[in-house]
Computed example of a mutant assay.
Amino acid sequence: MTGRFAYGLRVYGLDDVTDLMPAEPGDDLPEVTIRQHDGPRPTEVPLDRWRQVRLLADGRHLTVDRRTGTATFHGPPLTPDLLAHPYLAPPAVVVNRWAGRETFHAGAFVRHGRAYAVLGPRTAGKSSLLAALAARDVPVLADDVAVVHDGAVFAGPRCIDLRQPVPGAALAGRTAREGSRTRVPLPPIAVRAPLAGWFFLRWGDGPAATRLAAIDALGRLAAERSWPQLPSDPAVLLGLAALPAWELTRPRDWTALERTWRLIASVTESADLATAGRPA
């Protein structure tokens, strides 16, 4: 079995989840097998550095076992669309962090072969912005979790979940997550892309993009790490903060999406030209 690919992992147990790409044979990827247990978490299982347990927002427990390479959801069975998103993200974060990778609450898109991560709090409009980019044929790498390793960002499940459709965006969608979201499918994509920079979202006037100093980017990246209870390598975070970073301000106005896209295109074009002009 080759399993499925998501978040830089080879995932087993989710063959019926259509929003995941097939894993490529021979890829040297960390592996995890997803299981479900229709009942409470066994309380007699001791916790140590080889096991992590999370209480999820809906009352389910997630147990991740490093020795067995398994992640088990304890509670009522989850449907395939829920397993694709949002439930696959928590075990993926733990396994990636154990593998020495950084994970952020972020999405990512690709311009000229390089990835730009989009970060912000839960209501910052990351998914709607990424959906607007997808409608303009900008490749979207990930919607909810950006896994970073060796200077690259890994692809996530091939979908974006929206609380409400993006006006004017000709995107096919289907109902998902028990009717609470519109799921926009994304095409297959390369499993990773080199990381070029960061966009931190905020609402306000604009659109405007303000370049951030590395020290400011470092603080914001530290705040957006997924599952901060697990330790990070400070040198890795410092290196990531040295990449170009901008605070992207835009109004809560759907009509501003086109101007926001033009601004993003201009900023990333300038960043690409600056990178191309550096000596090898």
Results as ranks from 00 to 15, higher is better:
Y12W: 09
G13L: 01
L20P: 01
P25N: 08
P25Q: 01
L29S: 07
P30C: 08
V32Y: 05
V32M: 08
G39D: 04
P40T: 10
P42E: 13
V45H: 13
L55P: 00
L56K: 09
L56D: 06
T63E: 14
D65C: 12
R66C: 02
R66K: 14
T72D: 03
T72C: 06
H74E: 10
G75T: 10
L78K: 05
D81K: 00
P90S: 08
R101P: 01
V110S: 04
R111P: 00
Y116P: 01
A124H: 03
S127K: 05
S127T: 14
A132S: 15
R136D: 15
D137Y: 05
V140T: 09
L141Q: 07
D150A: 15
G151I: 06
A155E: 03
R158D: 01
P165W: 03
P167W: 10
G168W: 08
R174D: 13
G179N: 08
T182V: 15
T182C: 10
L186K: 07
R192V: 01
R192D: 08
P194K: 07
L195N: 03
F200D: 01
F200L: 07
L201H: 06
G204M: 11
G206K: 12
A208R: 14
T210S: 13
T210A: 09
D216Y: 03
G219H: 10
A222I: 00
L230D: 06
D233L: 06
G239V: 10
A241R: 06
P244I: 02
P244F: 04
R250K: 12
R262C: 05
R262I: 00
V267H: 01
T268F: 05
E269P: 00
L273Y: 14
